[in-house]
Design a protein around this nucleic acid. Structure first.
Length: 276
DNA sequence: AAACCTCCCTGGGGGC
DNA sequence: TGCCCCCAGGGAGGTT
């Protein structure tokens, strides 16, 4: 389930191998991905002959830039999406929705069994696309600060702090795994009302979010079931998870039994002794 | 306006 | 063994 570190890992794994390659053919096998955002039918025409220049990331969106500068290919992996660079001889996968043929006899495959993902076309640098135009702060940027989070807590007073840090209009890229982990590292109960956090606690939580995300990127992301980067490697951060997926097990810090809770339709795990 | 609910989709896992 | 049901997840849009 790709969150920011997994998407960043995919970008980094593809960046060097894609740069300079040209799209020879863009083949849509199934346009019906996320229902509200089907693959634009003119994508093959837009991309034929285009040369990759760089790969960037905004929130959990992967932005593939081309030398033509007419637009940007925007990819969202949903929760089961994969972007794999493979030889053209590898037979198509069961849920391979898009195949991009490249000038060096390789192919970039978009595979997504659960179809929560999306492939979109953004004009110019892509930032005007509706999926990117209304996003909150990048968690690893200096704009995501204690004061920024504190202000968000004041304007969403009654929301649980876990739901607030998972709100992409506030801060992007923090999904269920890293929200749970960061709240543990920051020592804050997930069900606390946003308005109850003081500036000092916001500072702790911001630092914890940055720390957990950076650590996960360093480990190539978290592979729960099937996440792999562009070169097919699984992530190792799952070994570092302190609370996510460990409900009922002893807290690694104090030994207390970790508690499971449902918060805004999401499963949450926390330690009632280490977090308050 | 803030808070809450619902839907989209498939595969894995547990229960029987 | 197979079938059924629940669950996982982000984001958008609708309702209270």
């Amino acid at each position: 389930m790709p969150e920011l570190p997994e998407v960043e890992t995919v970008c980094r794994s593809l960046e060097n191998s894609l740069r300079g390659l040209t799209v020879t053919c863009f083949s849509i096998n199934n346009p019906h991905l996320r229902l509200r955002y089907p693959i634009p039918p003119d994508l093959p025409a837009q991309l034929r002959g285009a040369c990759f220049t760089q790969i960037t990331r905004r929130a959990k969106y992967i932005l593939l830039h081309f030398s033509t500068k007419k637009g940007v290919l925007i990819v969202h992996l949903g929760m089961s999406g994969k972007l794999l660079l493979l030889s053209k001889d590898v037979p198509p996968f069961k849920h391979e929705h898009v195949t991009i043929f490249l000038s060096n006899d390789q192919t970039l495959r978009f595979i997504d069994p659960r179809r929560f993902g999306a492939l979109l076309w953004g004009r110019e640098d892509g930032n005007s696309h509706p999926v990117l135009s209304n996003l909150g702060a990048e968690p690893l940027s200096s704009g995501f600060s204690a004061r920024y989070l504190y202000a968000a807590c004041q304007s969403h007073r009654n929301v649980a702090i876990k739901q607030l840090i998972m709100d992409s209009k506030v801060v992007v890229g923090v999904g269920n795994i890293y929200a749970s982990e960061a709240l543990f590292v920051g020592g804050i109960l997930p069900q606390r009302k946003a308005s109850s956090l003081c500036l000092k606690e916001c500072a702790r939580l911001v630092a914890a979010i940055k720390h957990v995300l950076r650590a996960s990127i360093k480990h190539g992301g978290t592979t729960i079931r099937d996440f792999v980067s562009g070169d097919g490697k699984a992530g190792n951060f799952v070994r570092c998870l302190k609370v996510y997926g460990r409900a009922g097990a002893p807290c690694l810090q104090c030994g207390e039994k970790l508690i499971a809770l449902r918060l805004g339709q999401r499963s949450t795990v926390y330690c009632q002794k280490c977090q308050n």
